[in-house]
Amino acid sequence: MTPRRHLHLDPTKRQPLLKDQAIANEDTTSLPVKKVFTKPSGSKGDEDASVYFIGTATTVIEWCGIRILTDPNFLHAGDHVHLGPGVTAQRKTNPAVDLHELPAIDCILLSHYHEDHFDQFVEKSLNKSFDIITTPHAKECLTSGESKEDPFRTVHDLDFFDSMMLHIDRKEPSHAGGYGKAPAIKVTGMPGKHVPPGPLAMANDLLQAVPPTNGWLLELGYTFKAPTGSDAESVDVGFRIYISGDTLFVDELQEIPKRLRDEKIDLMLVHLGGTTIPGPSMPLLMVTMDADQGLKLMELMKPDVTIPIHYDDYSVFLSPLSDFKKKVDDEGWGEKVVYLDRGEQYRFKVRGA
């Protein structure tokens, strides 16, 4: 998982998120935090990073002055999205904050090109020069000049186990890069399958009805650059976040802990809901994890803390959050889970900071 690409993020020189903005929102713009959670096993009060839950799979991850927006969906209750041939879903909830109310954002992490993760309102509103990290398929959809009158211009694609280093540039000499300790976030694409293996997957490969999807591994820490003449660069990881993305519990996920070589996952954001196509009234195909699969993923990844997201915002969800809560409580994993409602935040400490 050696980084093959680099992106420099400078909080003092942010791009505006929206195309009708002249400058980025000020850092003084605050998220409306309803409640703050910390590690269930106890807090020392030294947390310096956070995850804020907006709704569905949309979160803001913040550390060291950098904010990453995941899977932006800002539709409201009653709005509809198109999820494939003949399949639509209605939003049942409102986001904790609207798109234009966000504080300054540095980049977007998009798991796949599906309207419940990147809705048409977002696509039309975003600054086309804004940095987006996503799948090869989504990059093609976002940048294609043939299908887009105004394509996105700075989309970075990561396939499974491809990595990219997000360098956090600062004016302060201690964070200027050079040969020393500098904060960075290593982003690695993780395996995911939105459609179960077998004949349906083969049919979907031909029809392209359900798009390919990634999970993500975010490693927050500090880079150490080698002396002049060497391109070597390592990361002293202080916190790992695994985001499952819209995947089922498939064999490919077994590769993740093997590659980590028993290195700890501090936080897992798991996409649940048991999303069904065409919907709960006719559940022909499940394309995201339900409660049982969510527990299996916890058992496989063994994260220190798990936060379920993507569980009740749309009409296509069959497996309620209450099923997952009962399952983890019954199996003795309840103390490892933090439940965030929209507008709530989980705060954590990055080691070595």
Rank of each mutant, 00 (worst) to 15 (best):
R5C: 13
L7D: 14
L9V: 14
T12G: 14
Q15C: 05
P16V: 13
Q21N: 13
E26T: 12
K44C: 13
E47F: 06
S50D: 09
V51G: 05
F53P: 05
F53H: 10
T58H: 04
I66N: 12
N73H: 11
F74G: 12
L75I: 12
A77W: 01
H82C: 11
T88N: 11
R91M: 12
E115A: 13
D119A: 11
L126V: 05
D131V: 05
I133K: 00
P136N: 04
E140Y: 00
E140P: 00
C141F: 01
T143Y: 02
T154Y: 04
T154V: 03
H156R: 06
F160R: 05
D162T: 08
I168P: 08
I168L: 13
D169L: 10
E172R: 00
S174K: 04
Y179C: 10
K181C: 14
A182W: 03
G189W: 03
G192L: 01
K193S: 15
K193P: 10
G198N: 07
W216E: 13
L220T: 09
T223M: 07
P227H: 07
G229V: 03
V237M: 06
F239V: 11
R240D: 14
G245D: 08
I256A: 10
R259I: 05
R259N: 10
D262V: 00
E263K: 09
E263V: 02
L267A: 10
G273A: 12
T288Q: 07
M289N: 06
A291V: 00
D292R: 02
I307G: 10
S315I: 01
L318Q: 13
L321G: 09
E331R: 04
R342V: 14
Q345E: 15
Y346A: 07
G352N: 14
